[in-house]
Write a protein that binds this DNA or RNA. Structure first.
Lengths: 202, 202, 202, 202
DNA sequence: CGGTAACCGAGACGGTACGTCGGGTCTTTCG
DNA sequence: CGAAAGACCCGACGTACCGTCTCGGTTACCG
């Protein structure tokens, strides 16, 4: 993998090695051949000793999740179309399109599986999920401030519906995940919000 | 595990062995100590030779998922309150209550993790999920026939909104899964359905 | 402990694997390229899983020593020339010639090194050494019975003088180990025995 | 190990560090817990960087053997009792007593093991052994000059019998190594010498 | 007297081998 | 002839050391 020699950095952590490990991790996670990413192959492909991985990460799951967070966390821009439905549709489309990619989906599936076994990975997963949720929650709060969502609405549950559908489809693979689904779900959620507003009004 | 001696049955398949294997599988899946259920421990605990497992199941994942399906698949009665919201609330409450139990949740988490690695398990998971979805889909279709849901509504997506939230919370564990969530989600979905009806009417 | 005769079910030890392991061990020990015989290479060369080695031997040293004992223990015939000096010369010549071979010497050196670290190997070495000593002790006892060695002579020390010289030269390599040395040492020891006889007589 | 701070010596070799390394090496070699003295533990215990060891010694074995030579090489005084047997008995008693000490024996065993693997150590061992042999050879030559040993006698083989017995017992541990053995062996060797003298005379 | 060369403690690095664990197959013996 | 027992091959696991490297610092020598 790393043909060109990576220089030692003495007694300080070698940033180049860290990068190589994470890059290779994303690469391997992306393969959906079912091969479950071994530490040996990871180390070999990164041109790194296994100890260098274990020195900095407590477990395989931790590496994979950090790698995943880097990849999947590639910022989804927060749109501002002026309406809840427009914002949702744009955000969901970008999000679903990302997660729908074969490679990213594979990363997500492997990571979630790892998180079920490894407590470290679990914690990383929790943090990753939280960071993603925060973005969407912000979008919804803005809409609420604009008066498009009732004050008492359960924003968390709305967020869960989005990411729930996303993970569910990624993990089980029973249905597609693309622009059409994003649009449909955006409409459903804005309908939910509108209905509650009407309640409050009436 | 099997204190009393299970008799050999000679040349015919030993149903008792099959039962013991599935029972032990559920038991081990239920432990959420993170220990990942090995075939050896499964065979030992069931008082069964490993070959007896492999004779009847193609892989570890297949056993575990079949075990899970037995447990988690305990039939949720399909309610009939006369209204979509009532039906949903009853169904979701029962479903969430089941999945929210520590043991069942543990089984689900382990099974989903297994399904990400093992193709056999993946297929089983797909089938299990499909069977569960069919029930809820039936409930929604009935409501559509009653005129509570628009003809063009994406029922599959509504089903996903339910099971997506369920799996998402089970797997990540960032929020509770109980009657309150069931009620809130039932209300949201029926609102969403009603909104589409209004569109169609106008 | 409490178990009486259990008839043993299940697959039996694979004798071919055992032989392959020991043969390969001798082969690898024999290389005096300094490469220290790893379990991995041993298993690979024998076409055997590592576990199969660890199932039957407690440590690497134990395998190597058993292999060595088989090789070096190839029976040295006990000569019967009628005189102590003749017997000694024949026995020592055969023994030294064996140990002097490059391959056997290499096996001996590696084994002794292993025995210094590994308690299991140490015990095996003790047993091997003891079995070799017994043969020579028997030869000396016969000579004592014939009256060629004084009753009070320290036979154990005489045996040590033989094997001491042998191991010393094998391990340090400061001098040859062949027929000439055998003859010289045989003469020295029979002289030494004769001297004690004279003492007793005088 | 080194509680008090060792002062830097700038660009000149730090003698204190060298001493600390050798002292710790002897200390660790002396443990007969079978733990095989690693460079890391050696460096840590000496409060020294690993590079400081590799700067001055070509390999682990070299350090250990130099340490051993220092300890075991503590000069055995060459006695002068006037007779071969007396000289031998005194010299052997002192030598055996030294090597018989648990700590020294442990050092010797570990060093010899190291010498079988490491070429540097092997060479050091050869040199050490040679220096020890020279002393005993000198003692024998003096006796030959006095006419107590025949001119044609194989002094080297006599020396080998002494050190052979010593190493053999140290390495295998099948018998004690003390004054009694020293006396018995001294008598045996002087008997050998006397016998050859008689031959020459007759 | 200000570089600079060689030493030092520290510790990360790429590797190799370790001994263990688990997966899935194969073989033996019993009922 | 199915089922238990369990040995087999394979390969990943996480750890221990190896010998190399770079760092930041100290001290002695040299210009």
């Amino acid at each position: 993998m790393s043909d060109s020699r990576r220089p030692h950095t003495g007694r300080r952590r070698n940033e180049a090695a860290r990068r190589a490990i994470l890059d290779v991790a994303v690469d391997l996670l992306g393969r959906d051949d079912g091969a479950p990413v071994t530490i040996d192959s990871l180390a070999a492909a990164a041109g790194v000793g296994k100890q260098t991985i274990y020195r900095w990460w407590p477990s395989k799951g931790a590496v994979l999740l950090e790698a995943m967070a880097e990849r999947a966390g590639t910022d989804i821009p927060v749109p501002d179309t002026g309406t809840l439905r427009g914002d949702l549709e744009a955000f969901l489309a970008a999000t679903f399109r990302g997660a729908g990619q074969r490679l990213t989906a594979s990363v997500l599936r492997n990571s979630m599986a790892e998180a079920q076994r490894d407590p470290h990975a679990r914690e990383h997963m929790r943090a990753f999920v939280e960071s993603r949720r925060r973005v969407l929650t912000g979008l919804l709060e803005r809409a609420r401030d604009r008066g498009e969502i009732a004050a008492g609405a359960d924003l968390a549950l709305m967020v869960d519906q989005v990411y729930g559908v996303l993970w569910y489809r990624v993990l089980v693979g029973h249905g597609p995940l693309g622009d059409a689904q994003a649009a449909e779900l955006a409409r459903a959620l804005s309908d939910q919000a509108a209905a509650r507003l009407g309640d409050a009004a009436g």
